[in-house]
Amino acid sequence: MPGNSFGKMFRITTFGESHGQAIGVVIDGVPAGLPLSSEDIEFELRFRRPGSLYTSPRAESDKIEILSGVFNGRTTGMPITIIVRNIDVDSSYYEEIKYTPRPGHADLPYIMRYGFENWDYRGGGRASGRETVARVIAGAIAKKLLLSLDTWIAGCIKSLGNMEIEDEISFEEAFRSRCSPLKPCSIRYENMFRELIEKAISSGDSVGGVVEVIVKNPPVGLGEPVFDKIKADLAKAVMSIPGVVGFEVGLGFKYAKHFGSEVMDEIIVRDGRFGWRYNYSGGILGGITTGEPIVFRCAFKPTSSIRMPYKTVDLRTNEERIIVIKGRHDPCIAIRGVAVVEAMTAIVLVDHAIRSGLIPSVRLSNDIVSLIEDRWKRYREVCMHMEELR
């Protein structure tokens, strides 16, 4: 089966290409009764939209069209289909290099799998980061559903290039970063990040980054061992994002550098409830959420499209050639990637919450709807207030 779908009870199928008519998603498994508007989804899309400082200059407005599954402002329980039309498309750059696959991209693997004659070379086609618009659309709905459990998700840039934020990050700091053009986990690093990325831009280069995600108030007991562990599903969801090359939960790879006695996370009683003293495991043990904040990181490689000469092959002659990639590209895909990682996190959590019965699978009660609407309104107000403060 082609890998264009993800999830079980909350299942998404994305479609469309970077330079095609539209990008879209079908979301199945959304319970009936959820208030949903174009404004709700476009509010989330603003955090990954191109055309702003330090991102691709491609000027897409990302206005959505809801084609099915919503009536009178509420979900019907049927599949929801949403599209975003591509309006700022320029394929001329790709006409020049269609016979010379770009190093570091999916061009040659796609050609080897599907055949050159079936490959959409315009902007990377289906392999483009443009596909992630569909994920953020689905993630917006998932985030809204998670508010019924008072579960909140915030991502930020933990490191940019070789510059890493060593401070322990709070949820509030991570949440506050969404209003920064560089999304640093700590505002103290914003100017240093800016200098680094401006240096890369001026030299025609790019830079990688690490995104950290913190989930506040995750439900206890999500995850279905052995193969559907919550960390396994999060890893697959996040590693499926274009450009992501690494994933770790809690201490992650730092675990391997310690003795067991140094990283034993003691079980304690906190406010009358069981808890873990340090949360080294990132809120997940045995593949099941513990109720502690979920904390994980993922690494994005530097953008492969850079204005420097690199060797490739000419498919017409099978000879090596030197090319310089032109076009409109992000100098650091991790920055807009934050919104995508948040979205995939929300999709995994809401899928497991529905599977475990914490979120109704058929219809939301009026009490749940009121709770979601109050929290969604507060979420938007907090985001808008932070933007006004910048």
Results as ranks from 00 to 15, higher is better:
residue 239 M to R: 07
residue 205 D to Q: 15
residue 104 G to D: 08
residue 349 L to R: 06
residue 197 I to P: 13
residue 125 G to M: 09
residue 224 E to G: 00
residue 15 F to D: 10
residue 118 N to L: 11
residue 316 R to D: 11
residue 135 R to H: 11
residue 334 A to Q: 08
residue 242 P to R: 05
residue 142 A to K: 09
residue 176 R to D: 06
residue 320 E to C: 01
residue 38 S to M: 12
residue 227 F to M: 11
residue 200 A to C: 13
residue 89 V to R: 03
residue 253 F to C: 02
residue 259 F to K: 15
residue 85 R to L: 10
residue 313 V to N: 00
residue 300 F to T: 01
residue 324 V to S: 07
residue 105 H to F: 07
residue 55 T to S: 15
residue 133 V to H: 03
residue 307 R to Y: 14
residue 164 E to T: 14
residue 44 E to Y: 12
residue 72 N to H: 11
residue 116 F to S: 02
residue 214 I to M: 00
residue 212 E to C: 02
residue 238 V to R: 04
residue 385 H to C: 10
residue 248 E to P: 13
residue 187 I to V: 14
residue 268 I to P: 12
residue 359 I to L: 15
residue 200 A to T: 12
residue 385 H to S: 14
residue 116 F to L: 13
residue 234 L to M: 15
residue 384 M to T: 09
residue 204 G to S: 07
residue 248 E to K: 13
residue 302 P to W: 03
residue 69 G to W: 01
residue 86 N to G: 10
residue 328 R to W: 10
residue 307 R to H: 11
residue 98 K to D: 03
residue 87 I to C: 01
residue 91 S to H: 02
residue 4 N to V: 03
residue 358 L to M: 12
residue 43 F to D: 06
residue 136 V to A: 02
residue 92 S to G: 07
residue 95 E to V: 01
residue 303 T to C: 15
residue 264 M to G: 03
residue 137 I to A: 04
residue 163 M to W: 04
residue 90 D to G: 10
residue 3 G to K: 12
residue 114 Y to W: 09
residue 26 V to P: 00
residue 279 N to V: 11
residue 200 A to L: 09
residue 229 K to P: 06
residue 133 V to F: 06
residue 159 S to T: 08
residue 306 I to C: 06
residue 48 R to L: 03
residue 285 L to R: 15
residue 250 G to N: 12
residue 23 I to K: 06
residue 365 S to K: 09
residue 270 R to F: 15
residue 229 K to H: 09
residue 25 V to L: 00
residue 220 V to G: 05
residue 308 M to F: 06
residue 173 E to H: 05
residue 374 D to R: 15
residue 242 P to A: 03
residue 4 N to F: 05
residue 317 T to A: 09
residue 306 I to F: 00
residue 346 A to F: 13
residue 178 R to A: 00
residue 85 R to Y: 10
residue 317 T to D: 14
residue 78 M to H: 05
residue 347 I to S: 00
residue 232 A to K: 08
residue 23 I to W: 12
residue 276 W to E: 05
residue 81 T to V: 13
residue 83 I to H: 10
residue 274 F to S: 08
residue 28 D to T: 04
residue 191 N to K: 14
residue 88 D to G: 03
residue 14 T to V: 13
residue 237 A to Y: 12
residue 92 S to A: 11
residue 313 V to G: 05
residue 171 F to N: 02
residue 360 P to A: 08
residue 207 V to Y: 07
residue 116 F to D: 01
residue 67 L to G: 04
residue 137 I to E: 00
residue 157 I to N: 06
residue 370 S to F: 08
residue 107 D to E: 06
residue 329 H to E: 01
residue 274 F to Y: 10
residue 200 A to W: 00
residue 194 R to I: 01
residue 373 E to K: 09
residue 61 S to A: 10
residue 166 E to H: 04
residue 134 A to K: 05
residue 95 E to I: 01
residue 129 G to P: 13
residue 384 M to Y: 07
residue 324 V to D: 00
residue 134 A to T: 08
residue 135 R to P: 07
residue 170 S to W: 02
residue 251 L to S: 07
residue 296 F to V: 11
residue 100 T to M: 15
residue 105 H to I: 02
residue 251 L to G: 00
residue 245 V to G: 00
residue 177 S to L: 06
residue 315 L to W: 06
residue 69 G to F: 04
residue 156 C to N: 14
residue 244 V to E: 01
residue 312 T to D: 02
